[in-house]
Amino acid sequence: MHTAEAIVPAPAADTVVEVQNLEKRFGAFRAVAGISFSVTRGEIFGFLGPNGAGKSTTIRMLCGLLTPSGGTGRVAGFDIRTQTELIKTRIGYMSQKFSLYDELTVEENIDFYSGIYRVPADKKAARKAWVLEMAGLTAHRSSRTSTLSGGWKQRLALGCAVLHEPPILFLDEPTSGVDPNSRRQFWDLINALAGQGVTVFVTTHYMEESEYCDRLGIVYRGELIALGRPRDLKTTHMTDAVLEIDCERPHDAMAVLAKIPSVKETALFGKGLHAVATEAGPAIAAIRDALAAERIGLARIERITPTLEDVFVSLIEARDRAAGAQQEFRR
């Protein structure tokens, strides 16, 4: 795709995941529409996007669970089409659905994956102890997995995925359905693993989680629409000014703002509004006038640094406008 080509980063020396024009079609539907990127050793690489954007499909192709329809890719130096069995020895994977055996105990699940991954006999006990310790489950080692809370299940799943000490870890929405505290603990574990040199590829749709990533790709409708460090995304991909407006009746205010030509977008944000404009100064003046005319009390209006959510929303809306225009044109 044209946009994907434009954002291909120069391949680094220590590249562990590399993808060129990767594509997956299900019938007429293009779940992944030609994406290219690379991930370097020890990096936490995030894939941010709404549900159905193609995040899981991409991860499943990288793990050898799905065969790509087009494009090429290498994981740990092995081809994702022909060397999936080799890839599987180098990676750990955690799917978005909890997928350990509910009817087995914590310890039995660990033993199971330890056996399937053929962890050497002399290391088995140490790895098991490490997982139990890491997940905080030492006291619950004999509990049925079905009785564990979400956070525990998720840490156990992570433990089972890294029993064989893989250099690359794929996490597909690992924190969905887990309370914020457990989510925070989970990210501490991910950071610790990355600190030991493990490359982490993680998908998410939580904005605040994506801030923890070293680098972030934003995917939408099967395409990679932005790629970079979270800090850079906020500056380079957001040339427009973001204004934070604290006013009365934000719903009515939104309707008023929509009529101002210099305001490109408005969105409810907390108790107030965020508005996007090309130039901050003239837009602020126009908004003050318009709200005064409608007798809507304005407490505060100022330009702010965009959040990742602003970037995300702005990129997606720009993309939708472009797609809409294209359709108009075709007609």
Partner: peptide
């Protein structure tokens, strides 16, 4: 249940 996927990413 989805457990088969977790087994299929192992080198089994």
């Amino acid at each position: 249940v989805g457990t088969i996927e977790q087994v299929m990413v192992t080198p089994i």
